[in-house]
Design a binder for these strands. Structure first.
Length: 422
RNA sequence: GGAGAGAUGGCUGAGUGGUUGAAAGCGACGGUCUCGAACACCGUUAUUCGAUUUAUCGAAUCGUGGGUUCAAAUCCCACUCUCUCCGCCA
């Protein structure tokens, strides 16, 4: 949500931003509604003022009581009438307000979509194999690590069982990430994965993309697609002390996505599944610190992937690929030798005050003034995809998998995942 | 699932129809004192919206949404959430 005052004064800027984000919102229509709304508001305020005055007079002077009560009744009728009229306008106005996306920061490239994203840099050395690297799907099947066939029996397509070392890898990754991030003042947290409509809407996920979200109608609860949706609203209607910022959380949760509209894409394996586990960073900070904090989250993502020695590249998303809430966003894409391509493994967004405004999360500065915080999120590890990257990058000629050095302490110091004896 | 209690400002907590936007305390901020700090004392301290000559003025907000009333934190209804007891349960 943006500030209506800002929209009034910068309508051209907003229009351009919407265009750049490839979102169609009727800004002129909104401004017209806003003007109408203001007239109604003033009218109602005026009537309420007279109502309050009448009430005051009755209190002071009982002699004219009957006459004044009659007057008060008339005012009441009038207020009711105008309130009814303005209701529709107010509704439409709020609807439009919710449709306006966050404005991209000035250094974000204007572009239509994925094809216009900038590749900022490559990191890590892409291993050369003296054999044809296999896809993680083949590797996992031979090593009995992932079972999607049985998952299909139980849950349908796009589900998987992580077994044996794959399951142990998840436990290890969990330890590995928390050990590294708790040092940086992240508060570890395991959030609810079922949330109510209001927080889901406030985080900006129901406007476009409701299709993507699982909903439990009987209980009117939504399954989170990322723990961000559950962590962000934690502090809604709260005011932080400035000294407590930035407030950083490291959340771990299962994530649920319907993957509607991705039929036929990545149908094999667990690259794109309806349910996966994810470690997510979330940060509340002062507006003046959010750029720095964003770089910090990105640096944490890079640090973790570097420690695993997996080659990757950093992508800066263009305006058309930002999503509603983000003002700026970076993705990390890991190199997957088995697929012979880079695939997204993390994503970090600076949502500036867009979410904070809807969630009403503020902080109080030294001058006792309160102001909206900025919110940022970043994937620490999407576990399934990291496991994929490990399997493909650490595969050996004999079909076994070397365990990354950094993870061995959490894997009983084992060096390899060996083929199972049948 | 059954029974009961409750939700008030940054926090604790008073307030059962009319100068109550709301006592008091705590916290925070400013000042006096001090070499400096603590203590003590004095003062300031909610948010949103609208108008504006930028001094101010008006409206709304006491969990949420309705209702009663000339007038609602206060009365009525519904909902949400929290707590206690019982039942059930990993």
């Amino acid at each position: 949500m943006l500030d209506i005052k800002f929209i009034r004064e910068n309508s051209d800027l907003i229009k351009t931003a919407c265009e750049n984000k490839r979102v169609d919102v009727d800004i002129d229509g909104l401004l017209k509604l806003d003007a109408k709304r203001k007239i109604f508001l003033q009218e109602i305020d005026k009537l309420r003022k007279t109502r309050n005055e009448i009430a005051e007079q009755i209190k002071m002077d009982f002699s004219k009581k009957d006459e004044l009560i009659e007057k008060g009744k008339n005012i009441k009728e009038e207020i009711l009438k105008i309130e009814k009229e303005s209701e529709e306008i107010e509704k439409e106005f709020n609807k439009l307000m919710y449709l306006i996306p966050n404005i991209p920061l000035s250094d974000v490239k204007i572009g239509r979509g994925e094809e216009d994203n900038e590749i900022l840099r490559h990191e890590g050395i892409i291993s050369q194999f003296d054999f044809k690297p296999q896809s993680y799907v083949e590797l996992a099947e031979k090593l009995d690590l992932i079972d999607t066939k049985r998952a299909a029996k139980i849950s349908g397509s796009r589900f998987g069982y992580l077994k044996n070392e794959a399951a142990l890898l998840e436990f290890a990754l969990l330890q590995f990430v928390s050990q590294n991030l708790i040092k940086e003042n992240f508060i570890p947290i395991i959030p609810p994965v079922m949330i109510k409509r209001q927080p889901m809407a406030a985080m900006g996920y129901l406007i476009r993309g409701e299709e993507e979200i699982y909903y439990l109608p009987k209980d009117e609860l939504y399954l989170v697609g990322t723990s961000e949706q559950s962590i962000g609203p934690m502090h809604c209607d709260e005011i932080f002390e400035e000294k407590n910022l930035p407030k950083r959380y490291l959340g771990f949760s299962s994530c649920f996505r319907r993957e509607a509209g991705s039929y036929g894409k990545d149908t094999k394996g667990i690259l794109r599944v309806h349910q996966f586990d994810k470690l997510e960073m979330f940060s509340f900070c002062r507006p003046e610190d959010s750029e720095k904090e964003h770089q910090f989250l990105l640096s944490m993502e890079e640090k973790l992937i570097q420690l695993l020695e997996i080659p990757y590249r950093v992508i800066k998303m263009c305006t058309g690929d930002l999503g509603d809430s983000a003002a700026k966003k970076f993705d990390l894409e890991a190199w997957l030798p088995g697929q012979n391509e880079f695939r997204e493994i993390t994503s970090t967004s600076n949502c500036t005050d867009f979410q904070a405004r809807r969630l009403n999360i503020r902080y109080r500065n030294k001058n006792n003034q309160s102001n909206f915080v900025h919110t940022l999120n970043g994937t620490a590890f999407a576990i399934g995809r990291i496991i994929i990257a490990i399997l493909e990058n650490y595969q050996q000629a004999d079909g076994s998998i070397k365990i990354p050095n950094a993870l061995r302490p959490y894997m009983n110091n084992k060096e390899f995942i060996e083929a199972k004896k049948h």
